[in-house]
Simulated assay, not measured.
Amino acid sequence: MDKQRTTLGVLTLLPLAAACGTQTAGNGPARAETAPLTGVHWTVDSLTTDGKTARAPSGAYLRIGADGRVSGDLGCNGFGSKAVLTGDRVEFGEIRTTDMACEKGPMSFERSLGRVLADEGAFTARTDGGGLTLTAADGDRIGLTREDDAPLLGTKWTVTALGDENVSRPLPKGADAYFVLREDGTFEGRLGCNHASGRATVSDGHITLGRVRTTRMMCQDSLMKTEKTLLGLFDSKVAYRLDHRGIALTSENGTVVGAVADE
């Protein structure tokens, strides 16, 4: 699915118009009895409103954290919210989205899904194997499927962006950067230009990277600049955060590396 940004730079979270007049959910943590719903990447499969079912565009999903924080994608734009979970009931607070324009189909689905999440009040949650159905009081419902996170070890993680906690920029054209963490405590990959390898130890949400060995090729300036940034991660400890098929590495000096799992 093609997404076209309407503005450059960091996307600002904006209140969804459909959320006006709705009550923001409380800030309390998710209840223990709804734990199976939390910490899971739920891919949105379909939305049924007024008896008509629409298939979701690729990439639509939601994830509810153990603290009730909600993140996801409505079909075009990313969104955030807060959820209160009580028994088999789920209620979403104000929906806040990024501000991108997409093709007509995804945008239409996004508007419908955003309205349902914001306006329907509490949903009844029903799980069946790897599926989840959220049903509103008026019968509108959202069909979702559980998707497991990509494993940290053995996955080829392709680097897509560099930045810090405030700004994320895509890699320059032609940059080939990826890494694979092995179960034997080693890593291999490429830094934008040169191949790299070394030691990597995973523990308690961190990866300790040893000294790096690289090939000695020279590439264009933009690729070498990317490589220099990535070299700064080595011989140090970086924090990592997995989110379905994505990973973020944060260095001790605040550099953030975004990567996605290869299919």
Rank of each mutant, 00 (worst) to 15 (best):
Glu91Gln: 15
Glu103Asp: 15
Ser71Arg: 14
Glu91Phe: 03
Cys102Ile: 09
Glu91Ile: 11
Arg96Tyr: 07
Glu94Ala: 15
Gly87Arg: 05
Ala83Gly: 07
Gly80Asp: 09
Arg89Lys: 15
Gly78Ser: 12
Gly78Lys: 11
Met100Gly: 09
Gly72Trp: 06
Asn77Asp: 09
Phe92Cys: 08
Thr97Val: 12
Val84Lys: 11
Arg96Gly: 11
Gly72Lys: 05
Ile95Trp: 08
Gly87Leu: 04
Leu85Asp: 02
Cys102His: 01
Glu94Arg: 14
Arg96Pro: 01
Lys104Arg: 15
Arg89Leu: 10
Thr86Asn: 12
Ser81Phe: 07
Thr98Gly: 07
Ala83Val: 01
Phe79Trp: 08
Leu74Ser: 03
Gly87Tyr: 04
Leu74Ile: 10
Arg89His: 12
Val84Asn: 10
Phe92Gly: 01
Val84Gln: 13
Ser71Asp: 12
Val84Trp: 06
Ala83Met: 09
Arg96Leu: 13
Cys76Leu: 02
Thr86Pro: 01
Arg89Trp: 06
Asp99Arg: 13
Phe79Thr: 00
Val90His: 02
Arg96Trp: 12
Asp99Ser: 11
Glu103Tyr: 08
Met100Pro: 00
Ser71Gln: 12
Ala83Ser: 08
Cys102Met: 02
Arg89Tyr: 04
Glu91Gly: 14
Asp88Val: 08
Glu103Gly: 12
Ser71Glu: 13
Val84Ala: 15
Ser81Trp: 08
Ala83Leu: 04
Ala101Phe: 11
Phe92Val: 06
Gly87Thr: 03
Cys76Asn: 07
Gly72Asn: 08
Arg96Glu: 13
Gly78Asp: 14
Lys82Met: 13
Asp99Gln: 10
Ile95Cys: 02
Thr97Cys: 01
Phe92Thr: 04
Ser81Gly: 07
Val90Glu: 01
Asp73Trp: 05
